[in-house]
């Protein structure tokens, strides 16, 4: 139904099983952070892995989704589901506007343009009154789901986050394995040929970009509800860099790579947090090592070893 091959289906079921078991063993709030990062990285991977465009400004969509979800939750007291959906829509609208400009160039220019545009979004958030500037939007309540399920309990919240993650993961997988996704891969491999076959490649790239940004917005909105806070960090370049790192480490263009990357990067940040700037040094070193020795990423290398597409 979702275009899984047999090994992928096994891996997917194993992942779902882990999702069900882990909260009883590990701290649920940490797991929720991993899942939000993983969904964000999966959204980013849709662009770099399947369209071949490296967006260096994905934090703009994640962060705006986070702000809007936090704001509507805190001041309009909307339902948790509505807040997350609004976060996704915000990501999509920003994706449409910024993507319309950015897809005019490809390759490194695309990376620089998305970086510059996300910097503009950052300045906007710094000045705009509704974001709370340096303070951000704090003490956002988790509210209720569908009007009657209270999310104050970490475990209840965890099941919602896990549900959102699985839904997002399957959506992306469905997109990649649809005829639309095949065209995207065709564009990645050889854009002039796709154009000569009559595809309007710019439209395809823009739609993929909007989809990716929408899911990034959903991830941001979910993150805002989990931690009850939306700040400038969410729209900052360092967040954009982090999602690039997560995806690169897990494996660009692999289905499970971003999830694996999120597990590793988030755990690393968790344990290295006490060492201050060493987190940055380690992240940079991982970039260098990945690019020099390890370009397939963790999941890509495992897949290569087992001769499977994971």
């Amino acid at each position: 139904m979702f275009g899984f091959s047999r090994p992928q289906l096994i891996a997917f079921l194993a992942m779902v099983a882990l999702l069900a078991i882990c909260p009883f063993v590990l701290y649920p709030v940490f797991l929720m952070r991993v899942l939000c990062t993983a969904l964000f990285a999966c959204a980013f991977n849709l662009m770099i892995g399947y369209v071949g465009l490296l967006s260096f400004g994905h934090a703009a969509f994640f962060g705006m989704g986070s702000y809007v979800a936090a704001w509507t939750m805190k001041f309009w007291h909307v339902d948790a589901a509505i807040a997350i959906i609004l976060g996704g829509l915000t990501g999509g609208v920003f994706g449409l506007a910024l993507g319309y400009l950015a897809i005019r160039r490809s390759g490194i220019y695309f990376a620089m343009i998305t970086l510059a545009l996300s910097q503009m979004v950052y300045f906007f958030c710094l000045e705009a009154p509704f974001t709370g500037g340096e303070d951000g939007i704090q003490q956002v309540p988790r509210g209720t789901l569908f009007g009657f399920i209270s999310l104050e309990n970490d475990m209840t919240m965890y099941w919602l986050v896990a549900g959102v993650f699985i839904a997002g993961f399957l959506t992306i997988h469905r997109i990649i394995h649809s005829p639309f996704g095949q065209v995207l891969k065709g564009i990645r491999e050889n854009e002039p040929r796709a154009t000569s076959l009559g595809y309007r490649t710019d439209d395809y790239k823009l739609i993929a970009f909007v989809l990716s940004c929408t899911i990034a917005g959903v991830a941001g909105g979910t993150k805002a509800l989990v931690f009850g806070i939306a700040t400038l960090t969410d729209v900052h370049n360092s967040t954009s860099g982090e999602v690039v790192l997560t995806t690169l480490l897990g494996g660009l263009g692999t289905v499970f790579g971003p999830v694996m990357g999120a597990v590793v990067v988030t755990s690393m940040e968790n344990y290295l947090a006490q060492f201050g700037a060493w987190v940055t040094v380690t992240q940079g070193a991982i970039f260098v090592v990945c690019v020099l020795a390890f370009r397939r990423g963790i999941v890509g290398e495992i897949g290569n070893f087992l001769k499977l597409k994971l």
Binding site: L54, I108, A111, G241, V244, L248, G276, A277, W278, V279, T280, V281, T282, Q283, G284, A285, I286, F287, V288, C290, V291, L292
Partner: peptide, 17 residues
């Protein structure tokens, strides 16, 4: 691009330390 970005993080992190 990714490699030089990583180098930048390493250099900045070391100076910050």
């Amino acid at each position: 691009l990714l490699l030089t970005f990583g180098l930048a993080l390493v250099i900045q992190g070391l100076f910050r330390n």
